[in-house]
Amino acid sequence: MDIAAEKKRLRALALGRRAAMGETGRAAASRAAAGQALAAAGAIQGRTVALFAPFRDEIDTAPLASALRDAGAVLALPVIIARDQPLLFRRWDKDIPLVPTGAFRIPEPGPEAPDIVPDLLLVPLAAFDRRGFRIGYGAGFYDRTLALLRARRPVRAIGFAFACQEVDEVPVETHDEPVDMMVTQIEAWAVGPRA
């Protein structure tokens, strides 16, 4: 099997399903997923949680950001330093303006926001399976970032997406970093340990 071709096929399939949800459906599902994620995260007061700014029709993290702030979490957002580098995270306080950056104009905190290392990462994705493997958008940012963070200390990664993005099985390559938990608008589940 050509893994790259299969990942491309599964990405297109899952993204097509996500787009078909429509704006109203995605908004309602994003609110429901925020409740699932907050319950799954456990005690988060004073812990640093890295979210992501949604891109195109990704799940909206704004409802979750509001709930996490109310629960006392410290929030962070990823910053792309260079194409082949891990992500950097900057603290995201409510009053810090976000700056659309890069080719895709994804909002991120500016350089005046302090760098911060998250305890918990909400990971965006195009497709996922029940084992916790995910297909991103092809640049490998989260795989590199999770590998680096996990080499330094324990960190929890939670895949955050709509249920319709689930596929039967994601083909796995050696560099693929699975998440520890998946959260959708319908359910949250921990994935098992890996060999």
Rank of each mutant, 00 (worst) to 15 (best):
A103G: 13
A127W: 07
F133N: 09
R26W: 09
L51E: 01
R156T: 13
I186N: 12
G132S: 02
A157L: 06
A71N: 06
A147S: 13
L38K: 08
A161S: 15
A62S: 13
A157D: 03
G25F: 06
P107G: 08
E169I: 04
G46I: 07
G42Y: 01
L87H: 11
P97K: 02
A67I: 02
E166M: 10
R83Q: 11
D119Q: 13
I44W: 01
Q185F: 00
V99A: 12
I158M: 15
M182A: 03
A147F: 04
L51T: 00
E177A: 15
R131N: 10
P86M: 07
W189Q: 10
D143Y: 01
M1A: 14
F89K: 09
A71T: 05
D60N: 14
A53T: 04
P54R: 10
A20M: 04
E187L: 11
A27C: 05
Y137H: 15
P114M: 08
F160Q: 00
T145W: 06
D70C: 08
P124C: 06
G35E: 14
A50C: 08
I106Y: 01
E23Y: 00
W189S: 12
A62N: 04
P193A: 13
R131F: 03
P124N: 03
L13F: 13
G138I: 04
D129Y: 05
P114A: 13
R91D: 02
A20D: 12
G72A: 07
E166Q: 15
E169Q: 15
A161W: 06
R153Y: 02
A5K: 11
R18I: 08
G159R: 05
D168S: 13
R47L: 14
V117E: 12
A147D: 09
S66P: 00
P97D: 08
K94Q: 14
L75N: 09
Q45S: 15
V167A: 04
P193Q: 09
S66Y: 00
V172W: 04
G136M: 08
A5T: 14
V49Y: 04
G22H: 05
A126T: 05
A12F: 02
R11S: 10
I81W: 00
Y142S: 12
P109V: 09
F104L: 15
Q165D: 09
A62E: 14
A190G: 09
A82W: 02
Y142P: 15
A76V: 10
K7R: 12
A27Q: 12
P171H: 05
A40E: 09
A113D: 10
R26Q: 12
P193W: 00
D95M: 05
D180Q: 05
A82L: 03
R134N: 10
A76F: 06
A43R: 13
R9I: 04
P178H: 03
A33R: 03
A62P: 04
I3M: 01
L75V: 07
L146A: 11
V155H: 06
D115T: 13
G192V: 01
V172M: 04
